[in-house]
Simulated assay, not measured.
Amino acid sequence: MSRNGLKIGGTFLSAGTCALAGCALLVRPRLLTWGATPEEVARTYPGDHLIAEAHSSSTMATTLPAPPEEVWPWLVQMGCDRGGWYSWDRLDNGGRPSARRVVPDWQSLEEGQRLSAVSSGRAWFTVAVHEPNRTLVLRSDVDLRSGRSFDIRAEPLPRAYVDSLWGFHLEPAPGGRTRLVVRGRGRSRPRPLTRAADVLFWEPAHFIMQTRQFHNLRERVTARV
């Protein structure tokens, strides 16, 4: 290739890199804080302390047309081995439709209980904080080499892992509604690789799945109003 060709190619590469960087600076903050107010983003929520030095964090929110005591039963029955996740079921519930009604058998939940994160049962969430009608925080610790969950208290830790929190926080809103704030926090290693994965894949994927869950929860609680 001629020098001019190399120069033109380098110019296009630099321009593309700058465009991607600019897109990340403009779009990424909106993905991580979709629907949340600045006050909600800045607030500390129950369970945040479990990952005090998080590498990543997101705060997303929506308002649901039912009081917290009517939203809570839908959250407490989540899990692949229970009512599903109310998101894109083909992606996170083995293709099985998430529950469209509150099931009494799935209303019992306690801290330390495991909820299957995937249909295979290889990975799970552990209930970390459980305050009925107020807060549900789920914790997931996954060995990235095997794709299996592990006990974060075990030593030594896997060489490559992710430790994450998925917290659901409910507050009464005017008109008998609920403000649902979802806080995500995580840490992982090896950080040079997991940071790239966070920005390029996990954060956009979480946005897609979380906004779908908001939509489906709104549909379900509306049907009961």
Rank of each mutant, 00 (worst) to 15 (best):
Y86I: 01
S120F: 09
D92V: 06
G84L: 07
F125V: 05
G83W: 11
S119I: 14
R114S: 07
R82Y: 06
S87Q: 05
Q77C: 00
C80H: 08
L91D: 07
A117G: 03
A117L: 15
L91I: 11
V118A: 10
D105T: 11
P73S: 07
S116G: 06
C80F: 08
D89H: 09
N93D: 14
P104L: 02
Q113D: 14
R90D: 13
W85S: 01
G121V: 08
G94Q: 01
G94T: 10
D105G: 01
G83R: 02
G94M: 09
G83N: 14
G112L: 02
L75M: 12
R82M: 07
D81Q: 13
G84F: 08
S108Q: 13
R122K: 11
R90M: 10
S98H: 07
Q77R: 02
D81R: 07
R100S: 04
R96Q: 12
A123Q: 10
G94W: 05
F125R: 04
L115T: 03
R122G: 03
R90W: 15
S119P: 00
W124M: 11
S116N: 09
A123V: 15
S120M: 15
R90Q: 14
W85D: 00
Q77E: 05
D81Y: 06
M78N: 05
M78P: 00
V102W: 03
A123P: 06
G79W: 14
C80P: 10
R96K: 12
E110S: 11
W106K: 04
W106D: 12
Q107G: 04
P104Q: 08
G83Y: 05
P97V: 08
E111D: 00
L115M: 03
R100W: 12
G83V: 01
S98T: 10
P104E: 11
G112F: 04
G121Q: 03
P73C: 11
D92I: 05
G79C: 10
W85V: 04
S120D: 13
L75C: 07
R96V: 11
L75E: 10
C80W: 02
L75D: 12
D105K: 01
R100L: 00
G112A: 15
A99D: 08
E111Q: 05
L91W: 08
V102P: 00
E111G: 14
W88T: 09
G83F: 00
E111N: 03
S87P: 10
V118D: 09
V103R: 14
E110H: 12
A99P: 04
S108K: 13
S108D: 13
G79N: 09
V103W: 02
V118M: 14
S108N: 13
S120I: 11
W88Y: 13
S119A: 15
W85F: 15
V118S: 00
G79A: 07
L109H: 01
Q107H: 01
D89R: 02
D81S: 14
V76P: 05
C80G: 12
G112M: 11
E110P: 05
S108A: 13
A123G: 12
N93S: 10
R96S: 08
Q77M: 02
R90S: 12
V102E: 01
Y86Q: 11
V103N: 03
L115W: 04
S108R: 07
S87I: 00
D89S: 07
W124R: 03
N93R: 07
Q77P: 06
L115P: 09
S98A: 14
D81V: 02
V76D: 01
V76L: 01
G112N: 03
P104S: 00
V103I: 12
G112I: 04
